[in-house]
């Protein structure tokens, strides 16, 4: 069985690497197929065609496409990602600074959403078909359906513009001075800026774990072993949270890994609304400015995170639930 598991995991790893290579290639092509070129965003009215050529040459865009592609792949493999067109500094440096900001916001939100969501989902399942359940599911669905840019703006209008309880955006006050790196992220000033965006995104992400948990738990609660426990005289609370919930949790965990990946990639809107200097906004700007190195590698990094977390979820599933590896190996795939 261990051989089977190993075979299964190696296969998943291989597929992940092929996916990454495909993504990298598509990214390379897609940016070069977009109308316009990177010199457009730099172009100044006084600029001559000659200056434009010079700029393209500095960017390495005058080389034939296949040569650029080879350089590009080489750069990925050696992790030497080159310099951003706009910032003129190394892509890795720019991305890592922004990634921290995004992670702080998104990991906090997703964690909160999954912890709260699981509890809420279990609670709703326990109260199934009561008024609380109907009402609760309704609220969760509304939060899921409401776009974050809208709830975000609404939150800003009420809590910032009207009541002045929270700042209107950014991660620090204008005049904030940090005492070292960590002070950037643990100071009250930062937490004050974090409250609203975290609340809005948590409420948005909450719905998936809550609804998944509720549905799984409803299935589990119908299983025979629950009846057995009831018969054994265990308390409802103990049955729900100690025994049933554990069994219902697995798919939720799987979602958690995947949605963290999507949260990091999908942070652009929330970052724009809250002026959050994170990765999402960086990617958006880099794409608009056709800053190839920056845009390509940020997207590639997102893809790596999503594919990586998926792979991780596969690994975890294979260990937590051995049936997965056996079934997959026997049926030869999906």
């Amino acid at each position: 069985m261990n051989v089977q598991r190993l075979k299964y995991l190696l296969k998943r790893l291989g597929l992940s690497l092929v996916s990454l290579w495909l993504v990298a290639t598509i990214l390379f092509l897609i940016f070069r197929l977009l109308p316009g070129d990177p010199t457009t965003s730099v172009i100044a009215p006084q600029m001559s065609q000659q200056a434009r050529q010079e700029l393209a040459a500095q960017y390495g865009l005058t080389q034939p496409l296949h040569v650029q592609y080879v350089y590009y792949l080489k750069n990925i493999v050696t992790m030497n990602l080159g310099n951003s067109f706009q910032y003129s500094s190394p892509v890795t440096e720019i991305i890592s600074g922004r990634l921290v900001n995004t992670l702080v916001l998104m990991v906090t939100s997703v964690t909160l959403a999954y912890v709260l969501g699981v509890v809420v989902g279990a609670f709703l399942a326990w109260k199934r078909d009561t008024r609380i359940d109907v009402f609760g599911v309704g609220i969760v669905l509304v939060m899921y359906a409401a776009p974050v840019f809208w709830t975000g703006m609404l939150g800003l209008m009420v809590f910032s513009f009207r009541f002045g309880w929270v700042p209107s955006g950014g991660i620090h006050s204008v005049t904030f001075v940090a005492d070292g790196f960590w002070d950037n992220y643990i100071s009250t000033d930062f937490l004050h800026h974090l409250v609203l965006p975290v609340t809005v995104t948590t409420l948005y992400f909450l719905s998936v774990p809550a609804l998944t948990m509720r549905n799984n738990l409803l299935d589990v609660l119908r299983e025979d072993f629950i009846e057995m426990m009831r018969a054994a005289g265990l308390s409802e609370y103990s049955i729900l949270y100690r025994h049933a919930a554990r069994n219902a949790l697995l798919p939720v965990l799987h979602y958690a890994a995947v949605s963290l990946g999507f949260a990091i990639g999908g942070s652009v809107i929330i970052e724009k609304v809250f002026s959050w200097p994170g990765l999402g906004r960086l990617i958006w700007q880099a794409t608009l400015a056709q800053d190839y190195p920056l845009a390509q590698f940020s997207f590639l990094m997102l893809a790596t995170i999503v594919i990586g977390l998926n792979f991780l979820a596969d690994v975890l599933s294979a260990y937590v639930d051995p049936r997965v590896a056996v079934e997959q190996a026997n049926t030869g795939g999906e």
Partner: peptide
């Protein structure tokens, strides 16, 4: 100071923070 939109930037000016 950079903001994500002019609305937020204007709100900061109105609050007296910019």
């Amino acid at each position: 100071k950079k903001y994500g939109g002019k609305t937020q930037a204007l709100a900061t000016v109105e609050k007296g923070d910019a």
